[in-house]
Amino acid sequence: MKKYIYNTITAIFIIFTAVSFNACDEFNTFPINIPISFEFTATGSNSVFNSGQYCLEQSDVYQDYQDKVQSISYVEAAYRTISVSDPTVQGTINVQVFNTVTNTIIINFTLSNFRPADYISTPLILNIDQSQINAFDTYLNNLPQNAKCFRVIVTITGISGTQSLNGAVDVVFEAETEF
């Protein structure tokens, strides 16, 4: 009788084990969003901000999951104005992302008739061509986990004299992470 009860319990346990592990399939990976920011100050005409080499492991969030990241993909980027000395100033903004291995441009975004004061409350979402996004993803995923690096250059033209602009480019990546 004792053996019968034990065998029945074992059978039920195995059934629920199978159900539970089926429900657990989705636990294997999960996507996390990693935001990073590049702040800069532009003064006078033809101001250029160069981030230098930026590597994803400089992000605290990426560091926490670095060993488990299976793939990285670009999600979205936005420009925002932190402060501008003259709200009427207008010019052109150009944002470029460089492959630091070959020093070639992967992403190139330009907006003319750019009024920084318009983007203090509402950021400008950078409308990047899908082919450039795909190229950026491929570039990042071909790099080692601890060396996913790129360079960002922001060029503002049309700011003259003593006018100054403090802005930031924010980027979000999605990292498919192993559980």
Binding site: A23, P31, I32
Partner: peptide
């Protein structure tokens, strides 16, 4: 499934993903 990212004046606010399951067993 996936979280989202919301752009704003202080940078992005990102939200976490879920565990992407449609049923939970309990014993």
């Amino acid at each position: 499934d996936k979280g989202s990212a919301y752009a704003g004046p202080d940078g992005y606010i990102v939200t976490p993903p879920g565990i992407n399951i449609t049923s939970i067993p309990v014993v």
